[in-house]
Computed example of a mutant assay.
Amino acid sequence: MIRRFIKERRSWIFLVLSLQLLFIFVAYIDSMIPLKPTIYIVFLSAIIFSVFLIIRYIKETAFYHSLEERENNLDFTSIPEPESPFENIVQQQMINQIEWLKRVNSENSMALEQEKDDLLSWIHEVKTPLTAMHLMIERIEDKELKASLTYEWLRIHLLLDQQLHQKRISSIENDLFIEQVDVESIVIKEIKTLQTWCIQQRIGFDIHINETEVLCDAKWLAFIIRQLLTNAVKYSSQSDISITSYQQGGQTFLEVRDFGRGIDPKDLTRIFDKGFTSTTNHDDQNATGMGLYLAKKAAKSLKITILVQSILGEGTTITLTFPKRNDFVNMIGV
């Protein structure tokens, strides 16, 4: 810091020292001016100038340290009052920059919020013709054509649903309604939604729901189960998917097990990362890398733990561990 201080003021220091040397030189060549008193005066002025530099260094260093401590603090009201014109210029520039950053941040936040609202509005508008399309598909008599169109309709429906929940998940805490939820009815409903796809993939379900009720949010739990089932169906073929629920240690567990291609061990720690698809099947165009990421994020808000176990080439088991009732005390007044 001291080197920087001297470097920034080297021109002023050089000027003062040059003037003092000039006084000594003039006194040396001019016999009318006594040399010794002149040297004494220059010596005293040099001491005073040195003390002045030390005082300025201490004050300005303290000022810059205060700026460094507040560089991430946008509340510029806590910045100390300037003690010199230089400090006043620096402080004013900093205040102007902070105000500009605040303004830009506010404008960006408003733009993002507007974009989010526009997208949500668009999704809801698209759902109307999508529902009409589904009703028209139901009236088609050609079974093969009907199955193909229903499958493509389902893909669009799932993508829109995922996008809708992706935009809502940032404010999920405002949307939660914790109640006793029937897990079995949610599972059956989601399987019915995927029925056409499952028939096309020749996939069946082996369901053993021993614990039917949990304390949760029905809508977001359905979304989590939908993502797990979608992944299980997508990466399985001509095999059954096992869905089991049980209670252990006062907690309810729900397992979704498939016998598909499984997950490479090196990918297990990354499957919940946003946008991650796979390293072994990196060219898979159907993967978005968002399903498990959103499921994990929603589960965290619901205090649900997701555990994944997988063997490459043999299948994957995903276990949802629901919280005990007391775990929701801080979330809701039940």
Score class of each variant (00 low, 15 high):
L112C: 02
I95P: 00
A111E: 07
E113I: 09
E115P: 02
F86E: 09
T131H: 12
P85Q: 11
Q114I: 13
M110N: 09
A111L: 05
I95Y: 03
L119S: 00
N105H: 14
Q97E: 13
E107C: 10
K102D: 06
Q92L: 12
E113T: 10
E115A: 08
Q114Y: 06
A132P: 03
Q92V: 11
M110P: 01
S121Y: 08
R103I: 03
N88T: 08
E125S: 13
S121M: 11
H134K: 15
E87V: 00
E107K: 13
L112T: 11
E115T: 15
S121N: 14
I98R: 01
L130E: 02
L101F: 12
S84E: 09
L112F: 08
Q91G: 01
K127F: 02
M110A: 12
I123V: 05
E87P: 00
L119N: 01
K116Y: 06
S106I: 10
H134Y: 12
V126R: 00
H134R: 15
S84W: 05
D118E: 14
H134E: 04
L101Y: 10
E87L: 00
K116F: 04
V90K: 01
E113R: 09
N88L: 07
L101Q: 08
S121I: 05
F86V: 14
V104L: 03
H134A: 12
W122G: 01
I89L: 13
E87Y: 00
K116A: 12
R103S: 14
Q93H: 07
Q97V: 04
E107P: 01
T131S: 09
Q114S: 14
E125R: 14
A111R: 05
Q92R: 08
D117S: 14
E115L: 14
K127N: 10
M133S: 06
E87R: 00
L119R: 02
M133W: 04
N108A: 11
N105D: 13
S106R: 15
Q92S: 11
L101S: 08
S106E: 15
Q114F: 11
T131C: 06
K127V: 04
T128P: 01
W122E: 08
T128E: 10
Q114K: 09
E115R: 09
V104R: 01
I98T: 00
H124D: 13
I89M: 14
I89C: 07
A132Q: 14
P85Y: 09
T128L: 07
H124N: 12
P85W: 03
